[in-house]
Design a protein around this nucleic acid. Structure first.
Ligand code: SF4
Ligand code: SF4
Lengths: 132, 132
DNA sequence: TTTATACAGGACTAAATGAGTCGTATTAGC
DNA sequence: GCTAATACGACTCATTTAGTCCTGTATAAA
């Protein structure tokens, strides 16, 4: 119930790498894929996704690549996880606001409270804590 | 990356119910299954598992059932989750101590730190916070 | 203008995990 | 001996995650 998806791990690895390359530098998917032994095709999709989320900017064509265009201190781990994995929550009713067992559920309220606790912690961790 | 398994939810629901029944009272799987609309067979396995973990004591035969034999204030959410779902960790290398990508991994150390943070929080939440 | 390099993205397959079922055995009260 | 309860292995079904395949588009440079 706690494990990051590989997608998330790879995304963090990629961002970490790009950040270490210095401001405005280009990095290719191939480069990261080879350095960290990540499937090129899979990594490509992840980078495309990070582009859509405006964390990096893609440059097409030969001599192309990706450029980091975000201050990673401004993005919380919670935000990032939701970017990568979709809405988060300890239980379905937090994620979709729906559950047939809702009335009569005896654990709903305490679980929501714990969920909030975790959320608060993750919201206070910038992903730069990971990529630095 | 945060969702509890149904097994865990059902286990918590069952414990909550049993706790509300008062000390030394017997509860049957059927009873809980019907009250909370949980598959009887599935719930049975979960209760059997809780028995093996010595949280409840099974009494066989007619007029049998399960009896809560643990002080739930003494069991942390972390312990409980590991009971129900096995070893927890944000990444594989925390769970199995193994990963081919370990050397050269740039996110390992910061991820371990965050993992520790979450672990500490969960270790300080007794499951009685949920079942009460 | 051709060629090589890089991103874009839909469709698909494979593997792993989670959820739930079936059937049968065992135990014990009445 | 009948009934009501737990015990448990083996199985099926559903969902999610991981990874692949293939074709298309953009652009720098020869
Ligand atoms: S309402 Fe209760 S059973 Fe339904 S998802 Fe929320 S916590 Fe789980
Ligand atoms: S070593 Fe790095 S890549 Fe491997 S599991 Fe740990 S964090 Fe993930």
């Amino acid at each position: 119930m706690l494990k990051l998806t590989k997608r998330t791990e790879y995304a963090l690895t990629a961002l970490s790498h790009m950040q270490s390359q210095g401001e405005g530098e280009l990095t290719t998917a191939r480069e990261i894929s080879e350095k960290y032994s990540i499937s090129f095709q899979l990594l490509s999709k992840i980078l495309q996704h990070l582009s859509k989320e405006n964390l990096i900017k893609p440059i097409q064509g030969a001599k192309g690549g990706y450029k980091l265009i975000t201050d990673l201190t401004e993005i919380s781990l919670w935000q990032f996880l939701e970017m990568m994995e979709g809405p988060l929550g300890l239980v379905d009713c937090i994620i979709t606001s729906e559950c047939q067992k809702m009335d009569g559920c005896v654990i709903l309220s305490p679980i929501h409270k714990i969920n909030k606790t975790v959320q608060n912690i993750f919201m206070n961790i910038p992903i730069s804590d990971i990529t630095n």
